[in-house]
Design a protein around this nucleic acid. Structure first.
Lengths: 136, 136
DNA sequence: CCGAATCCTTTTTGATACTG
DNA sequence: CAGTATCAAAAAGGATTCGG
């Protein structure tokens, strides 16, 4: 092996699963397909408190456009994370509610969110240190 | 009230925190900024088994381009999730290793990944059901 | 009120060729 | 080996307008 015998210690101190199945990353990416969009988690959280109407969601999530609200609602509904109920009144009234599946999913995101809350300072420090090299 | 007194039961059966602080969603989005990119988690996993070289990473992660590998490595390094070590040999030799911070982060993603693994069938079923309405 | 349709900008990713 | 530079495509998101 020409230039490749640095003997990498990759079989020794593996602190993460060295023989990581492709599945590990794939599963994470699958999860992101479900709630990785800009507004996905916000909508699930907002709809987790009970049925909520379109206009209420729009107010509850500052900055979202009607278009993105509609699109994200459709995706979440299709994925079985939201149920959409139309009340044939006039004017029309539509309610969205998070499913048990969405609530499980949300609970599974908490560990990651909490890690981010607990470490955002360390991240900021790392970024500052990185940015402060080269033009000091 | 014109049309707005459906009296929504949002204060009753709140199964998710109804008074959800904006911080919950923000923290999750912060985490996604760190490992939400297409190749971020794959690189962290690959570099979690000990120091690994650029070309090894390139081989270990099927489909990634050198460009995206470089870009994502830079971001992860800046965020303090990877350390880059240059050995001034010839030819040049550069190693990347996941930091303890990255390993904590990775562990925090497991719950979400496992949920995705355990429920992808349910998701697929929901999608099939959704897609099978309208042109049956 | 709820949402579809259209158009446009920004962000992200990829293909390819070149360099110390 | 380990990148950089350039170009282009695709995806995501947003603004606005129109309709049932």
């Amino acid at each position: 092996m020409s230039a490749g015998s640095a003997g990498s210690a990759r079989s020794a101190g593996s602190r993460l699963p060295a023989d990581v199945e492709p599945g590990v990353c794939a599963a994470f990416r699958d999860a992101l397909d479900l709630v990785g969009s800009k507004w996905g988690i916000a909508i699930i959280v907002a709809a987790g408190g009970g049925p909520i109407r379109f206009a209420e969601l729009h107010r509850a999530i500052p900055g979202i456009s009607r278009r993105m609200l509609t699109l994200t609602l459709r995706t979440l509904e299709r994925d079985g994370l939201l149920v959409r109920t139309v009340h044939p009144t006039v004017p029309p009234q539509v309610e969205y509610a998070a499913t048990p599946l969405a609530e499980e999913l949300f609970r599974s995101t908490r560990a990651l969110s909490e890690w981010a809350e607990n470490n955002h300072e360390r991240i900021a420090a790392a970024r500052a240190a990185y940015d402060g090299r080269g033009f000091a």
